[in-house]
């Protein structure tokens, strides 16, 4: 019945048996808070993001932070070694994480990271793609859909232009990149379900 928290945004998958569920959650929250703050700082630097309403800025960040973190931390999933690096820097094998209860989400994260890495994006391209991930007009609770949509379109145009400049097979690369957006939504949904399972447990 030993509990594990199989998320690389924690320091370790092992949970102290003597801690209450509230303490476990507090400790986990403290480990991922700096990463979330970095996402907010990143969002603030997206040209036009600060011009959106406060409500819409919060809504986009609430809905998209997980997906941004998946993109930014894709390198934590080592496909060749089949390991996941946690925030402490310690690596855990897929087999070990499976034995701790990791399931379909872990496989999907590896699959996503592999496909994203294969696109060989530059730092600038990755950054612009991350902005496109965050500024999505179809997130729930958006007040001013037109403003978010306009910013999203500007970012997508900029991304397309950058990809066209840097890649030989630009149409295929751009298409593959846009197809990562529904993949991220799917990972986001799976992650929410796992969170629910953890909380219920």
């Amino acid at each position: 019945n030993r509990m594990h928290l199989v998320c690389p945004m924690g320091m370790s998958p092992y949970v102290d048996q003597h801690m209450s569920s509230h303490q476990i959650w507090e400790e986990f929250s403290m480990s991922f808070t700096p990463a979330v703050r970095e996402v907010v700082e990143f969002a603030k630097r997206i040209p036009g993001f600060r011009d959106l309403s406060q409500h819409d800025q919060v809504s986009l960040l609430k809905a998209g932070t997980f997906e941004v973190l998946v993109v930014r931390f894709a390198s934590l999933f080592d496909i060749k070694e089949r390991t996941v690096t946690f925030l402490s820097g310690k690596k855990y094998s897929v087999e070990a994480l499976r034995s701790m209860g990791a399931g379909e989400l872990l496989n999907s994260m590896f699959e996503f990271s592999e496909k994203l890495t294969a696109l060989q994006l530059s730092e600038e391209e990755m950054s612009l793609f991350t902005a496109v991930v965050l500024v999505s007009a179809d997130r729930s609770g958006i007040e001013n859909v037109n403003s978010v949509e306009a910013l999203q379109e500007t970012l997508i145009r900029a991304l397309r232009s950058l990809i066209t400049k840097n890649h030989a097979n630009e149409v295929a690369t751009f298409t593959k990149l846009l197809l990562k957006l529904p993949d991220l939504r799917s990972l986001n949904n799976m992650h929410s379900e796992e969170l629910l399972a953890f909380k219920v447990h």
């Binding site: 808070t33 603030k44 919060v58 960040l61 609430k62 932070t65 379900e193 969170l195």
Partner: peptide, 27 residues
């Protein structure tokens, strides 16, 4: 489970991180 962000305490972290930004804008 419609709002995983609130469950994680994400909203609070996000609002606090954005807050300085809004104060700057209004000043």
């Amino acid at each position: 489970f419609g709002d995983p962000a609130s469950n994680l305490g994400l909203e609070d972290i996000i609002r606090k991180a954005l807050m300085g930004n809004f104060e700057d804008k209004h000043d």
